[in-house]
Amino acid sequence: MTPDELRTAQDLAMANPERLHLLARMLTHPAGRSSAADLVPSPGSRVADVRDDLAALVSVGLVAVVGQPAAPDAPDTSLYRVSSRGIARFGSAALAAPRRPGDATLDEHDHEALLARLTDTLSADFAATAGAGTVERLVRECYTSLGGQIGSRGQLPALTAWLATDRLAAMAEVTYGSPRDVLFVCVDNTGRSQIAAAVTRRLAGDRVRVRTAGIRPAAREDAMTETVLARRGLDGLVEFPRLLTDDVVRASGIIVTMGCGDACPVFPGRRYLDWPLADPAGRPLEEVERMVDDITDRVRALLAEIDTADGSVGVPPDAAPDAGPAVLPLWARPGWLARLTRRPWAGPRTTCDASGQRKAR
């Protein structure tokens, strides 16, 4: 499938307005990943319908499956997150879609209206840990920060929703510093840290909360890194580059730095590791492939340490992070066009201490 054909398939998949609502719910989910049951819009809705919509969005690369693919005869326990492509292409339209009965459809180019709706949504979602004023301040801060980083103004509201949601979730966790909250940090947050995060998300599933950041985040993802990860079915698990902030460091129990250890703030009670890895930017594909293999081995070892520490059952040693998504691409299955448009609709619903470790000082 060519890039143009993929875009056409994505447009077709998103012609169903229910899927805009689905993306919006995923984009502002505090956990950063969601099950089909988490995303049911109302008590009268069917989980099976949500699962069908998610399968369609996974198939065209707008949503990614977190964790190992489930066995065909196993109960569906899959977790999902919006891919960076999904945020870029349809995130702002998803925020503009009505979330509740009586809501208006906003103009996706009206950023003030979108930010106001986002602030209301997050204020309700995080009412137990953040006041409305804190939420509004953080939303504005994320919007301004991203505005100085990227050139595409159209993506700003959706990226703001993603970043503000994650930072609010991190603020709610600042007293914990769980070893199952892992932060990967590099310079531009497009190569090493993204590879490590994608591999960890695939291998660990919901056993580990993964975040990434950069001390000087780039304006866009690294094309070669995405190419290599795409060959392993992991490209949907990377995210847009983000700036390292104190709140995500405080929320993390393990901080892994890659070429920027001295720039990372140190908080007591956290475990700091430094992985001396070269930056994949500008390197040939074969070298990046070897880097991914190296990082995968390091991630496996780290997950084994985490699981051993609390006696949990970890990922099997031979489980491959490149097993690909749990759902085959729609275009690889017979009748994919019919499946893409299977659900009828008539508009939006109105009812709804190892070597390299640094000590905290």
Rank of each mutant, 00 (worst) to 15 (best):
D247N: 12
G147W: 08
S35L: 05
D322C: 06
R7N: 09
V228N: 04
E226Q: 15
L244G: 10
A319P: 08
R250G: 08
V65Q: 01
P41I: 07
A71Y: 00
Y143G: 03
L22I: 03
A251R: 11
L54G: 01
P325S: 14
Q194F: 11
A31S: 12
R117K: 13
D103C: 00
V82Y: 00
R298V: 12
L122T: 02
R46I: 00
W331N: 06
A169H: 04
A161C: 13
L330R: 09
R100S: 05
I295P: 00
D38E: 07
P276E: 08
G177A: 12
A88G: 14
V315M: 10
P325R: 02
P30V: 02
D274H: 14
P3N: 08
D76K: 00
A56C: 11
R117D: 00
A204S: 13
W331A: 00
A319G: 03
T227N: 13
R220Q: 15
V199C: 14
I254F: 09
G347Q: 04
D294N: 05
Y176N: 09
Y272F: 05
W275I: 09
C352M: 01
A55T: 13
R343C: 08
V187D: 00
G67K: 02
A116R: 04
T134F: 06
C142L: 06
E18T: 14
L122C: 03
M1D: 13
V313P: 01
R207I: 03
A24W: 01
S145E: 12
L168N: 06
S355D: 15
L243W: 05
G282E: 06
L122N: 05
D110N: 07
R85V: 07
R137L: 04
I195T: 06
P334T: 06
L303E: 01
L168D: 07
H111G: 07
L22E: 02
P284V: 13
P179G: 13
T190A: 11
R298D: 09
L27G: 02
V313M: 05
D181S: 14
R180K: 12
R202C: 03
Q149P: 03
P329T: 03
R167N: 05
W345A: 07
E173C: 15
I255Y: 09
G335N: 08
V135P: 02
E286I: 15
P3H: 13
D53N: 02
T165K: 09
R89E: 14
A104F: 04
A48P: 02
W336G: 06
E239Y: 09
G177R: 15
K359I: 04
A196Q: 12
H109N: 05
W336P: 07
S152E: 14
S123A: 05
S45P: 00
D4P: 02
G214C: 12
Q68E: 15
P325T: 02
D307M: 08
P316I: 09
P72V: 10
D310T: 06
D294W: 04
E305G: 05
R81D: 08
R271V: 14
L229F: 13
L337P: 01
R209V: 11
V228F: 04
Q10G: 04
E136P: 02
V327K: 03
C186R: 06
P317H: 07
V47I: 08
D274S: 15
L12I: 10
T225I: 07
P157S: 06
D38N: 07
F267Y: 14
G32D: 10
L273C: 11
V82A: 11
G61Y: 06
C142N: 01
E5H: 01
L27F: 03
H111C: 05
R19Y: 13
L62W: 05
A332D: 15
Y176I: 14
R290Q: 13
